[in-house]
Design a protein around this nucleic acid. Structure first.
Lengths: 346, 346
DNA sequence: ACAAAAAATGTGCTCGAACACACTTAAACA
DNA sequence: TGTTTAAGTGTGTTCGAGCACATTTTTTGT
């Protein structure tokens, strides 16, 4: 009953050769109705599952997957992705899968396009892209499509029918989650939504989070929370924010839409008389430090590592095990405070 | 450079036969120092990784893994585990791994022991156990050890040097997480820790959570929160809790250590004048309903599904890919509120 | 009715690791 | 030096799916 049936078993049971069974299983035609019936009869009784190991052994093809993401040296936000990709490399090396990482400068569309050129020259079987630039991505994806190179995207959700799959988070919802937490920490007072980013290329990302945050308060019709948006950019973060602080003495909560919450926290740290709630993103070391100090109240975990890992692993499993690539994988919006943080940092 | 080297490649490069290479790779001896040197020289230059697919193909052994957990019909807490196990079954069926689930009555040590007998008769290669009964588990594990059957445990952490591996959550920490959230929701008032359980076999489980919860308030020396513990058991839950409510008009927060938060929420639902914060465990449907209604504020996700999945998958990967079985896997303590719940229910 | 074409079926090899077994070379001892 | 024993080395088969190709059977056309 538990037996693993092989093609040979089926052949024997149906009284035909394994070649015929193989033709039936793969609809390769050239099978007489008599033989088809006999084989189908057997197939209906037993529960045949092809041995994936044997199937893959024959396939000596080396799959090449290229990952395209911003240089973590320029924006450390992407650092966890490298770990996720490394995990996939280790896991699938033994199956003859080569995974290469290529970095581009997140500030430069030219760099993005150029790195894509490099990747195309490598003629990979699939690519995983962090599609920071909307227009350019659509063009590039079209090119990949023509070359029959499979494309998966992660982190930034790009609209467009040529984009077939995406791994990431629902940013709007994550903004809502932040809002719901803020609503819990403070009972009234002004709230600031702060976008801090060097590249400003994450505009859509940040706006989506802001929308979600504001929507929460709008929908619930919760009064007493005037919300202001602030855009800060290096190197004026400190000066601009300090002026803002002075001009808004009733500020009670800050929602930072990027992983730079620590920048704000470090400014607020010396001001002991201020009691301002901070909610930010990502478990980068500096953020976690402030979380432990009690200066940052909540962090939302975007789990870039898992995003990247899933991005490649779905591709690999598609090639190796013929699994479908899910259209969208939305990772959970993990709520992190000082008490559960340690379980998420990896 | 990307090439996948095979034993044949190494043999050719070292000028020996694949048999000799095989003996070197597996330290099977009977190799002359000359040949050993030549082969090692090649191995140092190239990066040989045996092809796992080919290795497993030869191994026609069918692995049998038995999972032992309480009957979900008696305690629906265990229902998600079944899904996790099912996932593992589907994933590993093609590799010749048979995973069987056996249920026992969580109220009866006799049933536990009896089911173990049944499992032993099946002579599996490994078992995954939900070790509800401390003493009995230790005895059983010893028996498995003698029979050379690998044992993994999940959900309940049992001390004992014969227990080699465990998948679960840090319950003390999860109590702390609950406390930190409670401390956020309410500013003062009485807090009740409620243990609701039919079987009462989860005593250790619940106590650990209570300890963590109390510790948090003790450590932080937060005043104004008298904490009372309440043990409720079917069928007296409603009556006993109602009396408690009347006797404690200043009750502001409730922490339920089991998945039965909905029982308390449903009692509080009609009492519109009461504003009591509820924190509970597990994303069972009824709990999520009350979460959506705003009656339950937070749920802590114990992720039984993943616990069970990881419990078996680590065993399977040990057999198939010779991976080590981690001593302890502590799953993150996911904080769930109404805004992010949808991403966790599966 | 018989050859040619078409359809159906079976055979045999491949993939890479693992191991049994056959074989060759070297050492040990009389 | 010849013979036994041990040490070292190579060959060949297995696992199951997949596919190319050889072979057999059936159909078609004259």
């Amino acid at each position: 009953m538990d037996k693993k049936y092989t093609i040979k078993d089926i052949a024997k049971m149906a009284g035909v050769s394994k070649g015929t069974v193989d033709r039936v299983l793969h609809n390769r035609g050239k099978v007489s109705p008599t033989a088809l019936d006999k084989i189908n009869e057997v197939l209906n009784v037993i529960d045949y599952e092809p041995n994936l190991i044997a199937r893959n052994l024959k396939n000596t093809k080396v799959y090449r997957i290229c990952v395209l993401l911003p240089d973590p040296e320029i924006d450390p936000y992407w650092l966890p992705c490298v770990n996720g990709i490394q995990e996939a490399i280790t896991e699938f090396k033994a199956y003859g899968v080569i995974i290469e990482t290529h970095y581009f400068n997140p500030e430069s569309t030219k760099s993005f396009l150029h790195t894509n050129e490099t990747i195309i020259k490598k003629s990979p079987d699939a690519v995983l892209i962090a599609p920071l630039f909307h227009k350019e991505t659509l063009g590039i994806v079209k090119q990949y499509d023509e070359l029959n190179i499979m494309v998966n995207t992660f982190n930034n959700q790009i609209e467009g029918e040529s984009i077939k799959s995406f791994v990431g988070q629902d940013l709007n919802k994550s903004g809502r989650v932040a809002a719901s937490l803020m609503n819990l920490i403070i009972t009234e007072g002004q709230i600031a939504i702060i976008h801090i980013d060097e590249s400003l290329k994450n505009a859509v990302h940040m706006q989506e989070k802001e929308k979600g945050f504001r929507n929460y308060f709008d929908e619930k019709k919760i009064p007493g929370f005037p919300i202001t948006t602030l855009k800060l950019k290096h190197p004026n973060v400190e000066s601009k924010f300090s002026t803002f602080l002075e001009e808004n003495p009733n500020l009670k909560g800050i929602f930072i839409t990027t992983s730079k919450a620590y920048q704000i926290a470090s400014i607020l740290a010396p001001l002991k008389n201020k009691k301002i709630a901070i909610i930010g993103y990502d478990l980068v070391e500096k953020n976690v430090n402030f979380l432990n100090q009690g200066l940052v109240h909540f962090l939302i975990h975007q789990n870039q590592k898992r995003q990247a890992y899933l991005g490649v692993s779905t591709l690999v499993e598609h090639f190796l095990f013929r699994k479908d690539i899910p259209e969208t994988i939305l990772l959970p919006i993990d709520i992190i405070n000082v008490e559960n943080a340690s379980f998420y940092v990896s």
